[in-house]
Design a protein around this nucleic acid. Structure first.
Length: 205
DNA sequence: TAGGCCATCTGGTCCT
DNA sequence: AGGACCAGATGGCCTA
């Protein structure tokens, strides 16, 4: 949230140079400049956890805009947000102007690749969110981690396959397995996970 | 405070 | 050549 403006004074060598080669006459830049003045408002909408629904987390436009503007949190950027408050538009303009200095093409390509990578990861995360919606969880359970989601999904699929093969009623099949202590070796796949505990929450009908 | 989880950046590799 | 994919590194956040 505070990582909005990059400190070019402090770290002019490691900055992102995406803006460096933009055409000064490119009209979109003007729009972005305007938007940059209010980055905090926009970035506030960009929390990765802003949506737990089964749909894409971000609109592409928001993602692109923020990616272009926000420094990398892992590279020490954004530390000057405290000093560059919204009541310093002049200073912000200066920094933005410095942002337009030409940079090596490599940096531009690298930053573009970073944006693509982030979008790719977001799409993966969206898929994880969707998958979370399809595995059984306790009502009070906290959000499953990615690895737990995958493991649970694997176990759940194994169980469903067994039910299909058995041709039995799902609920009675699970009840029978639990009652018999999972003597059947094929139960091992899904029985070794946390799935069994969650099965009681499933409405089978 | 340590450990788990995560987002992001990065460079390498593969694919189109 | 450029994009997609991948894995390693790093740092932030949260919880026990």
């Amino acid at each position: 949230m505070e990582d909005i403006f990059f400190d070019f004074e402090q770290d002019a060598t490691t900055d992102f140079a995406f803006w460096g080669q933009m055409d000064p006459n490119f009209q979109f830049q003007t729009q972005l400049d305007t938007l940059l003045l209010d980055c905090t408002t926009v970035s506030g909408q960009l929390s990765p956890w802003s949506s737990f629904g089964c749909q894409s987390v971000f609109p592409d436009e928001q993602l692109t805009f923020t990616d272009l503007d926000s420094p990398s949190p892992g590279l020490g950027g954004g530390t000057e947000a405290d000093s560059s408050s919204a009541d310093e538009p002049l200073e912000i303009s200066k920094r933005r102007a410095r942002r337009l200095v030409a940079h090596p093409p490599y940096k531009i390509q690298r930053h573009a690749a970073n944006i693509r990578e982030r979008k790719r990861m977001l799409s993966i995360n969206s898929a994880f969110e969707e998958l979370r919606c399809h595995v059984p969880t306790f009502p009070y359970e906290k959000r499953l981690s990615k690895i737990d989601t995958l493991r649970l999904a694997i176990a759940y699929i194994a169980l469903l396959r067994e039910i299909l093969v058995s041709g039995c009623d799902p609920k009675s099949y699970v009840d029978e397995c639990m009652k018999n202590g999972y003597k059947n070796q094929t139960n091992a796949i899904w029985n070794t996970s946390d799935l069994t505990a969650r099965l009681s929450w499933i409405k089978w009908d």
